[in-house]
Nucleic acid binder design. Sequence first.
DNA 1: AGAGTCATGTCAATCGGTTGCCAACGAGAG
DNA 2: CTCTCGTTGGCAACCGATTGACATGACTCT
Lengths: 344, 344
Amino acid sequence: MTDPPDARSPGASGNRKPPATIYDIARTAGVSPSTVSRALNKPGRINARTERRIRDVAEELGYRRNPMAGALPTGRTGTIGLIVSDVTNPVYFDLIHGAERVIASEGHTLVLADAQESPDTESETAERLLLSVDGLLLVGSRLDDARILELAEHKPLVLVNRSVPGLPGIVPDPLPGIRKALDHLASLGHRSIAFLSGPATSWMSGVRWETLLDEALRRDIGIVEIGPGIPTLEGGRQSLRRVRAARVTAVVAYNDLMAIGLLQAAKAADVDVPEDLSIIGFDDIFGSSLTTPTITTIRSPLDRVGETAIRRLIAELDEDDHSADVTLFTEFIERESTAPPRAR
Amino acid sequence: MTDPPDARSPGASGNRKPPATIYDIARTAGVSPSTVSRALNKPGRINARTERRIRDVAEELGYRRNPMAGALPTGRTGTIGLIVSDVTNPVYFDLIHGAERVIASEGHTLVLADAQESPDTESETAERLLLSVDGLLLVGSRLDDARILELAEHKPLVLVNRSVPGLPGIVPDPLPGIRKALDHLASLGHRSIAFLSGPATSWMSGVRWETLLDEALRRDIGIVEIGPGIPTLEGGRQSLRRVRAARVTAVVAYNDLMAIGLLQAAKAADVDVPEDLSIIGFDDIFGSSLTTPTITTIRSPLDRVGETAIRRLIAELDEDDHSADVTLFTEFIERESTAPPRAR
DNA sequence: AGAGTCATGTCAATCGGTTGCCAACGAGAG
DNA sequence: CTCTCGTTGGCAACCGATTGACATGACTCT
């Protein structure tokens, strides 16, 4: 507004300040660099007065520890990598926040990376990150077990929403939410439903389907799988044809995005939701309470999942093997997209 | 599903493989480490046959360049830091994707960081990142000019949706979108509108308000500012009281989140949108086309903004001063939340 | 006074890769 | 046959911080 881009201006590029090093501090404080290092990191090792003086000088010079230089001899960077199958997927918001909270409180730094839904990108990103972080958190990984085990050979690794034998993984138990959801559908009178599955490479989609299948059988509800599909609005929209062909009265979608897509397509095709078709999603993303009708869904406590996963990873780093594993559960959230099926 | 957590399993923690170094390669290839370094990075400097042999050995040993070690002497990490005021704000999705695309194609690595809407967190994060990246991209920064200039003293820095004299900044011109929006409201018959402003620290909110004010005056439309408010659903909801008190027929909100919040509150209070109240947002986030009615909004081409900003930053790194600055424009998107005001 | 303890600070090696400078070598020119 | 020059590869210093080993000096105890 009041800021015409100014050519010969302050802070412009060019002459950059080289950051202060412990050598600079040592020189102006009149001690040796190793003393500076110890004064800053080993409380008590150095005389209190000397330490005070060193800290003051450091402050004055605006000293910041160079993470690269520090990481070289110690092999520790104080950094944790979090690779998400898609950072812009609303599902992971709470998870990211949960992870951030714990990481900050433990004094580590978070490096977020995006796999952009591509196993290749994910693999490459993981490999690149591997050497510059202390540990890796893989969320909703699309990699196969072998590749994940390979990565885990180099650095501690924790999985979220994915399980690989021998590796720590945090997966909320889908059962409670699914049970409540099926009880809900059954009590409304639905006898025949469909599951809109996600990508074939999604381990989580498989888990959800298997659990639904079990529980539907147990309740004598008919169930069919429709898919695999892409886990997006568009994927949900595309499935409407097959949903109608299947003549089911209710659909459980792999995630809310697909559920919303299906809802949009249904609206466009004059299929009333929930009267003609009940829809249930998974994840309770931002957006599933914005639609009309709002989406009934099964949510995971992803903020707690994020926290737990990071705690687990940090324990791994510190070789603290007190894996006091909390179990986390999914939860059924009834909203407006489910109702008794219209009598035929 | 078929994966009972197994205790004595492969890839378990403990014995980790130390990564291969250029010294390992040098030893098995029978050359000196410096030759390896040159073979890998200075094409042509080393005899083609020797280079071939070294590359093969490197491949075989699964060698990965240690980014820390490499960064120490060169001062370059091949990494770019992107600090977003809130990673989970849907506004920035396209921007992040745009940035990712360019960064990947230029062979750099993206480090995403979240300021969590807090200037303190932002400042701290920026400082921590500063030493481990080659350049910094600040998106929607909440820091004051002085602090930003301070950060820019150490590393190249580019701003998005923010302008500080002397620093490169990418800000799409709000004028085209706002003009169209006001023309639209005027043609519908609105004579008196309100702007729901964002946080007082938001530079962008100021720009939007000033532009609206100018253009409203020019069209002889009455306009008042309501705010500052928090830029969330909740912030939008809370504003309903003041909106009604102001007796305006249309509201332009600082962003879509607030617009949606206002819409929800209006629904709950039996105020019909758009008949009783027209609402326009900014940003066109995921979600603003999910509501009923869908939200009319003014969008920025954020994917292009992201691309442009990264290009600019990389040019800065390479001292390429061919700042072929593209100008980017906002765009008006008419949806369902605007209509002629109900006759009183 | 001499031996033993402890607190304090320094030396120098190390992490892995980069790079300026030099040495060895072979080829072509005169 | 010597001289010059370009090619190829090695030596060693350096980036900034960490850390084991050690020197110094003060202090205690007998």
